Measured scan of single mutants.
Amino acid sequence: HESKLSILMDMFPAISKSKLQVHLLENNNDLDLTIGLLL
């Protein structure tokens, strides 16, 4: 999960990174759901 998140972070600009982190917190680190929201 950690490395997947790092790769994902590299793919998005800074603003999207903050949104990603907020979504991860709100969704209890449900990375798949977060990716779904961003794609």
Rank of each mutant, 00 (worst) to 15 (best):
H1L: 15
H1D: 14
H1E: 15
H1A: 15
E2M: 15
E2N: 15
E2I: 15
E2H: 09
E2T: 15
E2R: 14
E2S: 05
S3A: 07
S3P: 03
S3K: 09
S3C: 07
S3Q: 10
S3G: 07
K4R: 11
K4C: 10
K4P: 07
K4Q: 11
K4N: 11
K4Y: 14
K4S: 12
K4T: 11
L5S: 01
L5D: 00
L5K: 01
L5G: 01
S6K: 09
S6L: 09
S6E: 08
S6T: 12
S6P: 04
S6A: 13
S6V: 08
S6M: 06
I7R: 10
I7D: 15
I7K: 14
I7Q: 15
I7W: 04
I7T: 13
I7S: 08
L8D: 00
L8F: 02
L8S: 00
L8R: 01
L8V: 03
L8A: 00
M9D: 06
M9K: 07
M9C: 07
M9Q: 12
M9N: 04
D10R: 08
D10P: 03
D10Q: 06
D10W: 02
M11T: 10
M11L: 06
M11A: 07
F12K: 00
F12Y: 15
F12R: 01
F12S: 01
F12A: 01
P13G: 01
P13S: 01
P13L: 01
P13I: 01
P13A: 03
P13K: 01
P13T: 01
P13H: 00
P13C: 02
P13V: 00
P13E: 04
A14L: 10
A14F: 11
A14D: 08
A14P: 04
A14R: 11
I15D: 05
I15Q: 09
I15A: 07
I15F: 15
I15S: 06
I15T: 08
S16N: 06
S16A: 11
S16F: 11
S16C: 08
S16Q: 10
K17V: 06
K17E: 08
K17W: 03
K17D: 05
K17Y: 10
K17L: 05
K17C: 04
K17M: 05
S18P: 06
S18H: 10
S18G: 09
S18W: 06
S18T: 12
K19T: 12
K19Q: 11
K19R: 12
K19D: 09
K19G: 05
L20R: 01
L20W: 02
L20I: 15
L20S: 02
Q21K: 09
Q21I: 15
Q21M: 09
Q21R: 09
Q21C: 10
Q21S: 13
V22K: 13
V22E: 10
V22T: 12
V22R: 13
V22L: 09
H23W: 05
H23N: 11
H23C: 06
L24D: 02
L24T: 03
L24Y: 03
L24R: 01
L24S: 00
L25M: 13
L25V: 13
L25C: 12
L25E: 13
E26D: 07
E26W: 02
E26K: 09
E26F: 03
E26N: 15
N27K: 05
N27T: 05
N27Q: 08
N27W: 04
N27E: 07
N27I: 03
N27S: 07
N27F: 03
N28S: 13
N28T: 04
N28P: 02
N29E: 09
N29F: 10
N29S: 10
N29R: 06
N29M: 12
D30H: 07
D30G: 02
D30R: 06
D30K: 07
D30W: 01
L31R: 01
L31Q: 03
L31P: 00
L31C: 04
L31K: 02
L31T: 04
L31A: 04
D32H: 09
D32G: 09
D32K: 12
D32M: 05
L33I: 09
L33Q: 10
L33H: 03
L33K: 13
T34K: 01
T34P: 00
T34G: 02
T34I: 03
I35V: 10
I35N: 03
I35C: 08
I35P: 01
G36W: 03
G36Q: 12
G36M: 05
G36L: 04
G36Y: 03
G36A: 13
G36V: 04
L37N: 12
L37C: 14
L37T: 14
L37Y: 12
L37K: 13
L37V: 10
L37D: 11
L37M: 11
L38Q: 02
L38K: 00
L38W: 00
L38C: 08
L38N: 03
L39G: 14
L39F: 09
L39T: 14
L39P: 06
L39I: 06
L39R: 15
